[in-house]
Amino acid sequence: MNEAPPLIVALDFPNRVAAERMAAELDPHRCAVKVGFELFVAAGPGLVEGLQALGFRVFLDLKFHDIPNTVAGACRAAARLGVWMMNVHASGGLEMMRAAHDAVREIRPETRLIAVTVLTSSDAETLRGIGIDRSPEQQVLHLAELAVNKAGLDGLVCSPLEASVLRQRLGDAPWLVTPGIRPGGSGGDDQKRVMTASAALRAGASHIVVGRPITQASDPAAAVAAILEEMAKEA
């Protein structure tokens, strides 16, 4: 199920200089990297190409969500960059996800396309505020069915708290990429549904995303090593 490396470091920085400084402290054989909205807008495709030239697999975390034709075009452009993985919002609907799937397969079949279900910053109150009466778990299961079983996507971004039920529902094949990972004893920052790395793997996660516990550590390489050691206990 896994494709190494299962650890993804979130490069949540405001500019290319800061991101490349952090990348220089990381080993591409030990982790992939995630490039999100702020960094991609600031640094552009050149950063993605530069990280790939250093040997990193890049998860382009732009959560595409628009009309099907627009999302398909964005996915083609991302696939041409050669990214390892990208994502869309499952809440964009079945037609949008199918268009995204077909666009990625057309350009670069080996690129993984996954769907965001419910953001880890969201809880039941957040969902009620936008008119969704389901619990976060119920909404995740509903969107997971659309994304994986109907649209044919490769997996999901989900809270580690939903990984177990998703694994039971979807089987071993889909990737379950879980942000909201924190070392034991640390705070959750702005994420409400969090878990340790070892607990997420036990629950069924295939890949974990870690940001601040690595990128704000005094020794990022040592922080990576500690998390990998924790993960190895579950292998």
Rank of each mutant, 00 (worst) to 15 (best):
P14K: 11
L170E: 11
R30T: 12
I181H: 01
G188R: 07
S218Y: 08
C31I: 12
P213C: 05
H207E: 08
P109C: 07
A77R: 13
A43Y: 06
V33P: 08
W175C: 07
H207N: 11
R21K: 12
A115C: 02
K63F: 01
A78Q: 05
E162P: 01
P14H: 11
L176M: 09
A200H: 04
K192F: 00
Q168F: 06
L7C: 13
W84G: 00
M86F: 08
V17E: 12
A10E: 07
G180H: 05
T70A: 13
E162K: 14
H207A: 02
D12C: 00
N15I: 10
A221N: 12
P45G: 15
P174F: 00
P14E: 14
M231R: 05
R202G: 07
N69H: 15
S186N: 15
V209P: 02
R169S: 11
K233R: 15
G171I: 01
A199K: 10
D154A: 11
G211L: 02
A163T: 00
A90V: 12
D27P: 08
I114L: 14
G152P: 08
S186Y: 11
V140D: 09
G155L: 08
V210A: 04
M97R: 03
D189N: 07
D66W: 01
E106F: 07
M97D: 00
R212D: 10
M96R: 04
P213T: 10
A72Y: 01
M96G: 07
L60I: 04
Q138N: 07
R80A: 14
D133L: 13
N69Q: 15
N149S: 11
A10T: 06
G204W: 05
L39R: 02
G187W: 06
A197I: 12
C75G: 06
E125F: 04
V71T: 08
R134E: 06
L51S: 02
E234K: 14
D61G: 04
E229K: 13
H29S: 14
E229C: 01
V116T: 07
D66E: 15
R134M: 09
L119Y: 04
L153C: 13
R16C: 08
R16Q: 12
L39P: 14
G93D: 09
L141S: 12
Q216E: 15
I114D: 03
G185S: 04
P160Q: 09
S135G: 10
V157I: 11
T117Q: 04
D123W: 13
V210N: 03
I181G: 00
R80V: 02
R80S: 09
V35S: 12
A19I: 03
A197P: 11
A18Q: 13
E25R: 13
G187T: 09
A115D: 00
Q139V: 03
V88E: 08
P5H: 04
A100N: 09
V148E: 12
T70H: 11
A173M: 15
I214W: 12
L113H: 02
A124S: 15
G152A: 11
L119D: 08
A72F: 00
E38G: 05
V224A: 06
R128G: 05
Q139H: 08
G82S: 04
G44F: 02
A163M: 11
S164T: 10
F40H: 14
V41M: 09
L60S: 01
G93W: 05
L62G: 05
I107H: 08
K192V: 09
L146F: 05
A163D: 03
Q168W: 14
L161A: 10
L153N: 13
A124I: 14
K192L: 10
E49P: 07
V224K: 03
D12G: 09
C75Y: 02
